[in-house]
Design a protein around this nucleic acid. Structure first.
Length: 518
RNA sequence: GGGCCGUUAGCUCAGUCGGUAGAGCAGCGCACUUUUAAUGCGCGGGUCGUCGGUUCAAGUCCGACACGGCCUACCA
């Protein structure tokens, strides 16, 4: 269903068109006749000046520089899919390349879906509209009407009969062949990265597809998506440093959340049995290859389930996403290829440590254990006990070596204050950490629902500072939280793994960077 | 926070032993009605990240700073 598009083509006969008009307007605007007469201090604006002159010239010729809605026959990829020799179509997009042949021009139009070649012929278009076309610059958005045909070299092309200006670009697009390489500019001006580097746009298309599939996967299994506070009076649910901000109306400081966990559990108390939240967390920590201060986290809670239920859920979810979005369960090639074919390896924390350090590790005297750890090149703190030394060994040498997906289970209780202990061993908790490519992707727990024990664990963690205790959360538990499985999934890291990205900045559109000095 | 590397035209990059700056793309001009990294001829474009130092002379050597990258540290 298409509304007829109204093209307004006004013709001003008092001007000769094209370059002459451009020069005349440039003179009128700047008082200078030739570019060469401009001082070198204006050099950084040379492109802008040139384009402003072209804009003014186009405007005088009846082409308003910033148009409104333009009815298209379809996106460029839709036009390509429905190609039919001789059909009249309307299309819109950004002028990507121009090959000027004199009395005819080939140009590439690009939109969010594809590129499409335009053939601009003086004979077809008429001399005035043709000359006005010459005032366009790379990066301008135009709307066109024309006829589909195939060139001598076999390329689907639109021979345009009319065109209109939709948006004049005052600054040039990135270099057409090499694309935009400057890493800083790629992140700070991501739009230029997206214009110049099609593979970047494709990666973010896939990120959207991945998130859409995850939401659908969970919705299909009866999970409800919720939003809980990002501004919190106490930043709980994880042990990270929060960002502090000030709430003027309340006259008090509030924290950006570091995790939604404590609110999602309140919802379990309230009777929502299957909930998830997929949104941003904020942690006031350093920046590196795998850390951005704001990152996207998926947290899932399921009443009457436990860590085993989470195991099934995450394995199913990731393999589904890999297959449907990335088309394969094998990521990468050769030695470093990742094979996501289920079932994934499941191994206890203790077994992994023994595998690395020997069967007798947990019976070693502390000094012997420290000696062995230091022999691996680890630097230890003198105050550490065997559990802490063990965990250092795990984090620094074992976890990074787990390339293929691995569920590490039954972690020491002191590492995980919000999880329930194993029924056969109170020193361990009923959890797993899913590790892929040496990175912790998803921790899951059988959640602690005993308010008395929860209060004690919090107190153990924060010391005597009762002000850091989330009393309201404890109160919620006292109203009775059903036994539950819970899980967190780092969406950015999952995206890195599935797309093969080396840095978290490559999967976040606008990653945090240092502020530019003024 | 520490170490190493980088910053040259709008973009992508060269720049030798310290001797006053180069290419491709983009831009401007001319030619060209089936090209596609169009082509050919011509032209313009630089505070060599910033500040200071050494030197007759600094893009080049030295120091500080800014920003970026990698490593490391911190980090549920």
């Amino acid at each position: 269903m298409f509304m007829p598009t109204i093209f307004i083509f006004r013709h001003l006969s008092m001007f000769h068109f094209g370059a002459e008009a451009g020069s005349m307007l440039r003179f009128m605007l700047t008082g200078r006749w030739k570019r060469g007469s401009m001082s070198e201090t204006e050099s950084s604006n040379e492109y802008r000046e040139q384009r402003l002159a072209n804009l003014a010239a186009l405007q005088m010729l009846g082409y308003p520089p910033y148009g409104r809605a333009f009815e298209r026959s379809g996106s460029l990829s839709e036009l390509r899919a429905a190609f039919e020799e001789g059909r009249t179509v309307k299309a819109a997009g950004r002028l990507a390349t121009v090959r000027d042949m004199g009395k005819s021009i080939f140009a590439d139009l690009r939109d969010g879906s594809d590129r499409f070649q335009l053939y601009v012929q003086m004979k077809t278009l008429g001399e005035e509209a043709f000359k006005a076309f010459n005032l366009l610059d790379l990066g301008d958005h135009i709307g066109i009407e024309g006829e589909l045909f195939t060139t001598r070299t076999g390329e689907a092309t639109i021979k345009i009969t009319r065109w209109t200006l939709l948006s004049k670009a005052l600054l040039p697009p990135p270099e057409k062949w090499h694309g935009l390489k400057d890493v800083e500019m790629r992140y700070r001006q991501r739009y230029l990265d997206l214009i110049g580097n099609p593979e970047v746009r494709e990666l973010f298309n896939k990120r959207f597809a991945m998130i859409r599939e995850i939401r659908q996967y969970l919705a299909d299994r009866g999970f409800m998506e919720v939003e809980t506070p990002m501004l919190q009076a106490q930043a709980g649910g994880a042990a990270a440093k929060p960002f502090v901000t000030h709430y003027g109306a309340l006259g008090s400081d509030v924290y950006m959340r570091i995790a939604p966990e404590l609110y999602l559990k309140r919802l379990l108390v309230g009777g929502f049995d299957k909930v998830f939240e997929l949104n941003r967390n904020f942690r006031n920590e350093g920046l590196d290859r795998t850390h951005n201060p704001e990152f996207t986290m998926l947290e899932i809670y399921e009443a009457f389930s436990d860590v085993t239920g989470m195991h099934e859920l995450i394995q199913g979810m990731i393999t589904h996403v890999a297959q449907s979005v990335f088309g394969s369960l094998v990521i990468g090639e050769g030695e470093t290829a990742l094979d996501l074919t289920p079932p994934w390896r499941e191994v206890t924390y203790h077994a992994l440590v023994k595998e690395k350090m020997g069967e007798g590790w947990f019976d070693l005297p502390l000094t012997d254990a420290c000696a062995q750890a230091e022999a691996l090149g680890l630097s230890l703190d003198p105050g550490w006990d065997l559990l802490m030394v063990t965990h250092e060994v795990y984090e620094k040498t074992i976890e990074p070596s787990l390339i293929q997906p691995t569920f590490v289970t039954r972690l020491p209780a002191n590492l995980v204050p919000l999880a329930r202990t194993c029924s056969d061993d109170p020193s361990l908790v009923d959890v797993f950490e899913l590790v892929i490519r040496g990175q912790e992707v998803a921790p899951a727990y059988t959640e602690m629902n005993d308010p008395i024990e929860q209060r004690q664990r919090f107190l153990d963690q924060v010391g005597d500072d009762a002000s850091k205790l989330d009393i309201d959360f404890i109160t919620a538990l006292e109203h009775g939280m059903p036994p539950a499985g819970g899980m967190g999934v780092g969406i950015d890291r999952l995206m890195m793994i599935l797309s093969g990205a080396e840095a978290i900045r490559d999967v976040i559109l606008f990653p945090q960077l240092k502020r530019k000095a003024d």
